[in-house]
Design a protein around this nucleic acid. Structure first.
Lengths: 205, 205
DNA sequence: CGGTAAAGTGGACCGCAGGTCAACTTGGCC
DNA sequence: GGCCAAGTTGACCTGCGGTCCACTTTACCG
């Protein structure tokens, strides 16, 4: 392994240009108006290049999202409390959710776009398809982190489902709309209320 | 108003056939595979008829959703407790959320489809567009009901935002996927835990 | 250095889905 | 029965995601 020079210089440049163009268009237009051709034009490349590098529209979105989420992931793993290790789970959870909503606030309809596209896939198999949780690494990581923190604080709860619920506002066009209108703090505050309440509630047998 | 005989018999029949076909296809195929042409074919009508009666794909979905939600709306307004008037707000809220999740469980990707399509609209205007909450009467009604119940129980909370958050799982493909896999009760239970916790939590100044 | 093969690029092309339309058919009231 | 508007239809348009392959660029190597 460790193959030398695995990516050519112009390829790197174009990849960055495409991601930048995508983000740019996505912050100034509703997602459905941002076609691949527009992205390609804005990035100064051909449409084929976009597909060559990202495979599909969904792949592009996942790549963008992954890049956006990398910093947060590192802060969680290595950074200082309350986000990083060291703080009590309760504080880490609150800080993490704040951070997640902050990321989303800065990236508008990205997750909404993802949420609407990932379930698509392209096969008939759906009875037991493993589409949703495993298909998006960023979502999987966030979900696992929240689940772990809830479990640490309140082992008796259904942490996994609660984690899905706490993340579900990110899929809601209503919430996304609020975030875009600068209501981010308000949403975050409401989520904090929910989390605090559920963590402080008396244990049920 | 009250114009006599404003809808022809065959029109009514076709409208019902289209709605039935849509629901049918939607419960056996992922939303993106349910094209208007397929719906039209399944309903035994021409494609143009679908558009003539519902205006657009989104219009069709809204109509279906509205129909599905009518029974619930009546139960809330006139029905017996705990859903209808009479029970304490806390019980009504829990019952209502249970009912909402039950409706969605039986109608799979419907809301997910809606959530992904409504924010689209078709104009450039988005800075102050009133798209999300007002555009979908069913959502507006549910949101208003939840908000009122929360306010009745805990006036100090940001009931409106909490209502959006409590409804947001309906937009999440992950949650929808769970509902389809029969995890409905588990999701509902987790939501109940959240609601109970937030309603029982000590008031903050 | 210049050759060269692989990596990268671009845009014509395909299939398909949503949406439009103008000609046609049908239901219902006089 | 006859008339007209409401209703229906499917061919057609537009634009999207995605494929393909001939062409260009890069960077390693003798």
């Amino acid at each position: 392994m460790a193959e030398a020079r695995r990516e050519r210089a112009d390829a790197v440049r174009n990849r960055k240009a495409i991601l930048a163009a995508t983000e740019d268009l996505l912050t100034s237009h509703p997602p459905h108006q941002v076609s691949i051709e527009r992205i390609a034009a804005a990035a100064g490349v051909g449409k084929g290049t976009v597909f060559h590098r990202f495979g599909s529209r969904t792949g592009l979105m996942v790549a963008l999202m992954t890049e956006r989420a990398t910093a947060l992931g590192e802060a969680v793993a290595d950074g200082p409390p309350p986000l990083g290790p060291g703080a009590p789970p309760r504080e880490r959870l609150l800080a993490f959710l704040d951070a997640v909503f902050a990321v989303i606030s800065r990236n508008k309809g990205l997750l909404a776009t993802l949420g609407g596209e990932i379930p698509a896939a392209h096969g008939d198999a759906d009875a037991d398809g493993a589409c949703p949780r495993t298909s998006h690494p960023v979502y999987a990581a966030w979900h696992a982190h929240i689940t772990a923190l809830i479990t640490a604080e309140r082992p008796g709860l259904d942490a996994s489902t609660l984690a899905d619920i706490l993340l579900s506002p990110l899929h809601s066009s209503v919430i996304i709309h609020d975030l875009q209108r600068g209501e981010g703090p308000r949403v975050a505050a409401a989520v904090r209320v929910l989390v605090a309440a559920v963590l402080d509630a008396p244990q049920e047998p």
